[in-house]
Simulated scan of single mutants.
Amino acid sequence: MSEAELRALRWRCRRGMRELDQLLERWLERGWPQVSEHERGVFRRLLDVEDPRLWRAFLGQEPLDDAELQQMVDAIARLPH
């Protein structure tokens, strides 16, 4: 992956809600380098979820309908701070 592509992903992780920004950027830094291309695709799809719905999924208030996306949310939430 090129540096330009990584910068574009970092930009997409900036959501306007600091808590979401931190969760997504932390996973991009720590998880992205070690996961498969399929999991990277799931993360890209996760970035398409609207902020309020994504935040409710992280809080455990409203799981996402897509099992892969919910698994990604769970994995991101488990990352140490």
Score class of each variant (00 low, 15 high):
D65N: 00
H81Y: 10
L28H: 08
V35F: 00
P52V: 03
L6R: 15
V42G: 05
Q61W: 12
E5S: 11
A75T: 15
R53G: 01
E62I: 04
W11L: 14
L79I: 10
E37H: 06
D51G: 08
L59P: 03
A75H: 14
D51R: 15
L20E: 12
R53T: 09
P63S: 00
P80I: 03
R44V: 13
M17I: 15
R30G: 06
E50V: 12
V73W: 14
E37W: 08
M17S: 04
V49Y: 01
P52L: 01
A57H: 01
L20Y: 13
M1Q: 11
R7D: 11
G41S: 10
G60M: 04
E5I: 04
G16Q: 01
E37I: 07
H38G: 09
S36H: 01
W32F: 05
L59A: 11
E25M: 12
A57P: 04
L59V: 04
L54N: 00
H38V: 11
R30C: 06
G16F: 00
E39N: 11
D66T: 03
W27C: 06
P52A: 02
F58V: 02
R78A: 15
F58K: 01
D66Q: 03
L23C: 01
D48E: 12
S2F: 08
V42R: 04
E3Y: 08
G16H: 00
L46K: 06
W11P: 00
D74L: 07
R10H: 06
S36K: 00
E50R: 14
Q71V: 09
W27P: 04
E29M: 02
R12W: 02
D65Y: 00
E39L: 07
A8P: 05
E39K: 11
D65R: 04
A77D: 13
R14G: 09
L47P: 10
R40Q: 15
C13K: 08
R7L: 07
L59G: 07
L28S: 10
W27I: 03
F43M: 05
R56Q: 15
L28K: 08
A67E: 15
L59E: 13
W32G: 04
Q34E: 06
L47M: 06
R15Y: 14
C13D: 13
M72C: 11
R26A: 15
A77G: 06
V49R: 03
Q34L: 06
R78N: 12
R45F: 09
H81R: 15
L64Q: 03
P33Y: 11
H81K: 13
W11I: 12
Q70R: 01
R78Y: 09
L9W: 06
A75S: 14
G16S: 00
S36I: 02
P63L: 01
L20M: 10
L79C: 09
M1Y: 08
R14H: 09
I76R: 13
E25F: 05
E37C: 02
C13W: 12
Q22T: 09
A4D: 08
V73N: 13
E25S: 09
L69D: 03
D66E: 10
A67R: 13
Q71R: 15
D48K: 07
V35Y: 00
R30S: 07
E39Y: 01
R14Y: 10
R45L: 09
E39A: 10
L46C: 06
